[in-house]
Design a protein around this nucleic acid. Structure first.
Length: 576
DNA sequence: GCCGTTTTCGGCCCGACTGTTTTCAGTCG
């Protein structure tokens, strides 16, 4: 499965970074491992395959040393150098560095001087007043660490992008009455639309910064005010999420927005480029500071095009911007319809007519009705007879609409033997067929892959729904040979879905990018069961943008005729 | 540990904030 080893080694490299940092190694050596971890996490190729083809050293940031570590891991399942470096330092000692306010210096100091081996012992030592005996430690620091421990135990809470959108909407709405605010915009990983965010950053320009802060710290649902200065405030809200708000001068708004949007790696690379040009990027004072009212000023003064936030992960976007080759990215206005939703015919909450009415108001030209097929009893799947009745209803409704069309369709279950839950004669009649795995094996990679491949080779299947089956934080992706699947999808002219429901987000960004690179067309579906989730299309758009997929590779940007043609083309190709 | 049309050695992003200090170290983003 693509990414299996990538992920494992990425985690290993990150731990290696922690370990070296704890031991007080050269920070650049530490960073080299951190960087390697990130590279492996975002790599769209299978590391095992690259190693087999002798291409490890072609990856920027992987040198001879780390290449050896990777080969080591692939051969033995562990990394020799890691074991040597680690010796008898327990993992629980390294874990102390995860506490906010405790870094490598403090963690290794208390380990060496006081023999503290884990967080519990650290807590006890503070309570017994032992920590303040160490130089550099005082009562404030003790208090800070105790609070950090408490926070860490409550669970490092990352919020999924879906709920984050709702929260940001709510905060912006709450801040609206403050007259002093001129501009207000979320920055950080939310603005980059990462699938989960660790905190929310909000950037403001205002005539009266104090009025803004004073209002902000009274936000309902607040648990704690972590800090409230003249221009910056941090609060903690329910769910243990931190929200930072900063007020900056209008003249440096663009530079600040750039800085606080990140990613860190993207900014590091920009500063390197700035340094070469004798410039400085940043929001703070400096001789040759690039100030900028607009964010595009920053990028332009560095000799490149403005880069959409979703691409700012230092995975090649800077080079593209320098060459003026940033691709146009998907926007809501490009979308002509939604291609996955459920009605009262199966487990949806609303009758077809209401779904149609709602999506017309969103400005869509079409909507595919894709209820479940018969085998999926838990979701009240439709029998063949039901489906025929539903097709009749859709055709009758379509006669009422102008400039809007309902597509007949279904989310057909892929059965355990890889066959489809309806016979071909029925699938043939439908405008849009999604084939989905709803029950799959957690172990049988080969079996899962074969079922998907069988569906892809069915001439009437338009797209594969929520391919990997993951439910973020609840269920891991089912193991499957992603590359073989992408290849088959590209060859047969089968689309793959970007499922936008907030817990699925499946395909995820890295996979969507890989699929696009391999020539696959993507379809977007909200998998709506209740009309308030049609708005989750913005999650799908986020994935497509982070994947760098141009709009014309997304089925939903096409006119209806072309979607029909897509299905016909596949049928022509596969039926002889 | 990685990298190189300034370098195979000597660099590697950088400033704010906090607490403990009295000139600075550690942490964070």
């Amino acid at each position: 499965m693509l990414g299996m080893k990538n992920k494992e080694i990425s985690i290993f490299m990150d731990r290696m970074g922690d370990l070296l940092e704890f031991k007080g190694e050269n920070v650049f050596r530490v960073n080299a491992y951190r960087k390697a971890s990130r590279i492996l996490d975002q790599l769209t190729e299978d590391i095992e395959k690259m190693e087999a083809e002798g291409r490890l050293r072609q990856i920027q940031g992987i040198g001879e040393g780390i290449a050896k570590d990777i080969r080591d891991y692939l051969a033995t399942g562990t990394i020799e150098r890691y074991i040597t470096e680690k010796k008898d330092i327990p993992d629980s000692a390294l874990e102390m560095m995860s506490i906010p306010g405790v870094g490598p210096k403090s963690a290794s100091l208390v380990y060496k001087e006081l023999g503290l081996k884990n967080i519990d012992e650290l807590e006890k030592a503070i309570q017994e007043g032992k920590l303040r005996e160490l130089s550099g430690f005082g009562p404030k620091k003790e208090e800070n660490i105790l609070r950090g421990i408490q926070l860490y135990r409550e669970g490092s809470s990352r919020m999924l992008l879906g709920p984050a959108f709702l929260l940001v909407d709510e905060i912006l709405e709450y801040m609206k009455p403050v007259k002093a605010i001129q501009r207000i915009e979320p920055a950080g990983s939310f603005r980059r639309r990462k699938e989960s965010v660790g905190d929310i950053d909000i950037l403001v320009t205002a005539k009266d910064p104090r009025a803004v802060i004073q209002h902000f710290v009274k936000y309902p649902g607040i648990i704690d005010v972590l800090g409230a200065g003249d221009t910056k405030s941090s609060i903690r809200i329910k769910g243990n999420l931190q929200v930072d708000l900063r007020v900056v001068e209008e003249d440096s708004y663009g530079a600040a927005l750039q800085y606080f949007t990140g990613s860190k790696e993207h900014n590091v690379k920009l500063r390197e480029i700035a340094r070469q040009k004798g410039l400085k990027v940043g929001v703070y004072e400096g001789d040759k500071k690039i100030a900028g009212k607009e964010e595009s000023d920053v990028y332009e003064s560095l000799g490149m095009n403005w880069i959409p936030p979703e691409l700012r992960e230092d995975i090649g976007e800077i080079k593209l911007a320098q060459e003026g080759r940033i691709p146009p990215l998907l926007e809501f206005k490009d979308l002509k319809g939604d291609l996955h939703c459920h009605s009262t015919w199966s487990d949806g909450k609303h009758p077809i007519e209401e779904l149609a009415e709602y999506t017309q108001k969103m400005g869509y030209e079409y909507l595919a009705i894709t209820d479940h097929s018969g085998s999926l009893k838990v979701a009240s799947g439709l029998s063949s007879g039901d489906l025929h009745e539903q097709i009749k209803e859709i055709k009758s409704l379509n006669r009422k609409y102008q400039g809007f069309t309902l597509l007949t369709g279904n989310e057909v279950d892929i059965l355990s033997d890889g066959s489809m839950d309806y016979p071909d004669e029925i699938l043939k009649e439908l405008d849009f067929v999604i084939a989905s795995l709803h029950i799959a094996s957690k172990k049988d990679e080969k079996g899962n892959t074969e079922r998907i491949l069988a569906a892809i080779h069915n001439p009437y299947v338009t797209t594969i729904g929520h391919l990997t089956g993951r439910m973020i934080g609840e269920r891991d992706p089912y193991p499957m040979d992603i590359e073989a699947i992408f290849k088959a999808a590209a060859e047969t002219g089968t689309a793959l879905e970007i499922n936008s429901s907030y817990q699925r987000m499946d395909l995820k960004d890295v996979h969507a990018r890989k699929a696009y690179e391999m020539g696959v067309i993507l379809s977007m579906g909200t998998d709506t069961h209740s009309i308030d989730t049609f708005r989750d299309v913005r999650l799908g758009i986020s994935i497509a943008r982070r994947a760098g997929i141009p709009p014309e590779k997304i089925l939903n940007t096409w006119p209806l005729e072309k979607i029909h043609q897509f299905k016909l083309n596949k049928m022509k190709k596969l039926i002889r």
